[in-house]
Amino acid sequence: MARRLRVSWKSAYQWHQMWKEAGAAALVSRGPGGQRNKLSPYCLNKLAEYLDQGPAAHGWVEDQTWTAARVATLIGQKFHVSYRVSGATRLMHRLGFSPQMPVRRVAERDEQAVERGRRRPGRR
C-alpha cells in the first residue's frame, strides 16, 4: 500500500495504526504543516508595495538591491515582526520577488585591469 500511495513504509504504518485506534476520522487532513504566516494578507500587500518602492525609499541608498537581510529588517521596522533571513527569502519568492546579493567590491580592485581582461581576444 505504501508503494501505491508513494509514501514511506513508516507513514503507511502510522496511518494504519491511527485508523485502527480512532477510525477514519483520525486520517482527516490537518492542513499544511509548518508554521503559520506571521503577516496578515493586508500586511503582505503592504510589504509588496514597500518592495515595489525600492530600497532607497526605505533608507538603503548604497544600491537598489533587495537582499533577504534588508527585507527581514524592513519587516521588523514596519510590522514589528521578527523574520529570519531564510524566512524573508521564502516570503519574497511568494510575493514574486527574488532576493539578490549586494554588490561588494574589493577596495583594491583595479577596474582598468578587469576591463582589459574582458576585452582580451578569444574571450567569451
Rank of each mutant, 00 (worst) to 15 (best):
Y42L: 12
I75M: 14
L39K: 03
G34M: 06
I75L: 06
W15C: 02
P41Y: 00
E62G: 04
L74D: 07
R84M: 13
E115R: 15
Q35S: 14
R90M: 04
T89Q: 15
A113E: 09
L39E: 02
Y83T: 11
N45V: 04
V61T: 10
E62S: 15
R3Q: 13
E108Q: 08
H93D: 02
Q112P: 01
Q100A: 09
A57I: 01
A24I: 08
H58G: 00
W9S: 03
A69W: 01
W15A: 10
A72F: 04
L91P: 04
V103C: 10
D52P: 00
W19L: 06
S11R: 11
A12V: 03
T73Q: 10
L95G: 02
K78C: 12
Y83H: 10
S8R: 04
C43K: 14
G76C: 13
R94C: 01
E111N: 12
G33P: 08
L27W: 10
P102S: 15
R119G: 08
E111Q: 14
Q77N: 03
R4M: 02
V85K: 10
C43Y: 03
C43V: 01
T89F: 00
Q17G: 05
D52N: 15
V28S: 03
A48R: 14
Q14F: 15
R123G: 09
M18K: 13
K78S: 04
Q14L: 12
S98P: 02
R90N: 13
G31I: 05
S40Y: 04
G87W: 02
R116N: 14
G96A: 07
G117E: 13
A26R: 09
Y50A: 07
R70P: 00
V71C: 11
E108K: 09
F97L: 05
R6I: 02
V106W: 11
M101Q: 12
R119K: 11
V81N: 00
P99Q: 01
T65H: 07
S8Y: 01
